[in-house]
Nucleic acid binder design. Sequence first.
DNA 1: CCAAAAGTGTTTGAATTACACCCATGC
DNA 2: GCATGGGTGTAATTCAAACACTTTTGG
Lengths: 251, 251
Amino acid sequence: MSEKIRKTVHDDILDIIPQLSLDCVIFGFHDSTLKVLLLKWKGSNIYSLPGGFVKQTESVDQAAVRVLKERTALDEIFLRQFYTFGKVKRYDNEAVGQKLAHLIEESVFHERVVSIGYYALVDYEKVFPNPDELTEKCEWFDLEEVPELLFDHNEILDKALKALRFELSFQPIGLNLLPDKFTMPDMQRMYEAILAKKIDPRNFQKKILKTGIVIRLNEVKKGVAHKSPYLYRFDQNRYKEVLEEGGLFFI
Amino acid sequence: MSEKIRKTVHDDILDIIPQLSLDCVIFGFHDSTLKVLLLKWKGSNIYSLPGGFVKQTESVDQAAVRVLKERTALDEIFLRQFYTFGKVKRYDNEAVGQKLAHLIEESVFHERVVSIGYYALVDYEKVFPNPDELTEKCEWFDLEEVPELLFDHNEILDKALKALRFELSFQPIGLNLLPDKFTMPDMQRMYEAILAKKIDPRNFQKKILKTGIVIRLNEVKKGVAHKSPYLYRFDQNRYKEVLEEGGLFFI
DNA sequence: CCAAAAGTGTTTGAATTACACCCATGC
DNA sequence: GCATGGGTGTAATTCAAACACTTTTGG
């Protein structure tokens, strides 16, 4: 553990809530597949979700926003708290302590920590992945290619994905994964990637347009092979209306 | 603050996770209305939700089970973690400290606490409400008659009710509020009380019976005025099947 | 001109809603 | 015997699902 890191951890320890952390599952959508942002720890082959601690002077939500901003350079992120992980032994503390001994004092991992799980939906193109002091890479992984993760992060990821699927099934939150202008087939592929099922394009379009939450622009996407698809944009105001009407809609 | 209580709080402080608590919204159903179990603090007119701290040696879920058992004398309670409340200033620490100064050292309330919210569904008839050392009464309140509560407990209650309504809309969790044997009109009234809307009895019965999760017994409820209604019981096995089929059903 | 993806409507079946009268019981 | 709540079926409508061909573009 470098002196710098030791110092940082030590200074911070007074400012954070002890035994409480948060973990963020950051989802992106690219090449018709759902991606998740993972960190690779320095001098190792160990991966984990981005996470952090909650400062005494910030809310848990603010802490999540801060962590996300640090890792993605994005403000204004769609965030959902989905579960708090509170088992006594969330992972093999001994083993983790040894694996990370070159970076962090082992005793840190002897203490039990409760972690609040958030998931975030971001526009893949706008993200600049950024590792922190303890990690050397921050990169996107296809969901099917996620390796074994540190702590209980595979479990947290599973639960986040379930929560995302559930919520996407009746609220159009998936729009947060798309760029400002997108095509109907893009949107459909996004739904298909997350829900892991094929959807009929005619029925899909009908359903989406009926809600009125997207608006077709007088533009088509150029420079693509084959027929040029129309571009759409999200109608934030209409979306809020739909939500206030209690409007849930199923895909 | 009595010596006994001071000692208890002091002894416990080493065994619990600091700055982390949990709060339980315990719902019951009686007289066609949804009820919630509240505590009245000693020597005051202050009410709050039951809650507690998480011991170092127990999971957060176990802590919730323990709290529920202490307040209701029930094992095997239906419990759902629904949200973690993490604002920096969840309530007016000064004011609360003063209000409870006769029971607890004021400084306790100067520290910021993150609280994990659970809601429980219990069989009203089986509950023996039980105050703790700091409270003098533990009693059921109609939802409409809930007074101003301590801390941010009104907000927690609101959010629990929303979560309950949402979940009840597509999973038959409300059965946990009913006795082992119940009538179809009972069940309907329970849905009506929670969702706050009238339901057609023919359509309701059709929908419930179609799922197969309740079974009509060869008994009727005796001793009631008017026509004797049939009794039903919950089919736990069928319920599990339905859940595994991914079966959600709307009311 | 060919290959590949985009765009579009109608028909069918399933599910949901609306609706009203008779029955059994306790008083 | 009467007032009250319990029990039940059908018709109308709405909503969801199935399904295939034409159009446009780049290469």
